[in-house]
Design a protein around this nucleic acid. Sequence first.
DNA 1: GTCCAACCCCTCGTAATCTTAGGCATAAGA
DNA 2: TCTTATGCCTAAGATTACGAGGGGTTGGAC
Lengths: 111, 111
Amino acid sequence: MANPLELFKGTLDVLILKTLSRGSLHGYGISRWIRETTEEELNIEEGALYPALRRLETKGLVEAEWGVTDTSREAKFYSLTGEGRTELEAGLNHWHRYVRAMSRVLGSPAG
Amino acid sequence: MANPLELFKGTLDVLILKTLSRGSLHGYGISRWIRETTEEELNIEEGALYPALRRLETKGLVEAEWGVTDTSREAKFYSLTGEGRTELEAGLNHWHRYVRAMSRVLGSPAG
DNA sequence: GTCCAACCCCTCGTAATCTTAGGCATAAGA
DNA sequence: TCTTATGCCTAAGATTACGAGGGGTTGGAC
């Protein structure tokens, strides 16, 4: 990873929830998928990822279950709960409104 | 303000710098301009604003000078320094790259 | 004449979140 | 054998926004 962007605090949860909306996945896989999907722009540090997953689990937004990966390793698989899906929708909405508000102040990238 | 959005931590500085790029302005005016420009979506709390201005001043990104407002009140006017403009460009760049990265994960608002 | 909203500045404690830097363990490949 | 990739975790530290408080002035409504 050349130069991953620093995360704006508060944006990680929706990234995780969205990633899990594609299907059950373990922590390492979540991190990798985000990194690859953003072409190395976003790199989720483990010190942020695992506490975040615990947080989401405590809130009842995700569920965890131990399983086995493609490579025959033990891993904890997370999946969205119903509440998690609702929260994801709310998070997406928040983010999109935020982007709109920001661009009113900052101007659009091309203007 | 009906329901201002909670700020993502790390986005306030660029909002302030951008606002000041339009010209010298005092704290209260900065807050008001952002609130009006975003149609009440972003409301900068004073407990966030004034410490942020101090921060930016300490970093040499803005300069402060006491003056008099339109309404004949004493107020501390802030203006961008050269370094501040550079930092603003960096901040804008960071934000725009971030939005692109986020939308790769989250999908575009319409998709 | 008094009261209230808008204007203006500030600080502190708290909570939340990410970064950095560690630790531990297994599997595959050079 | 040694390194890389895969996997999980925690603790300390820094940063930053929020909430709640403090102060004071001005102008207009009542």
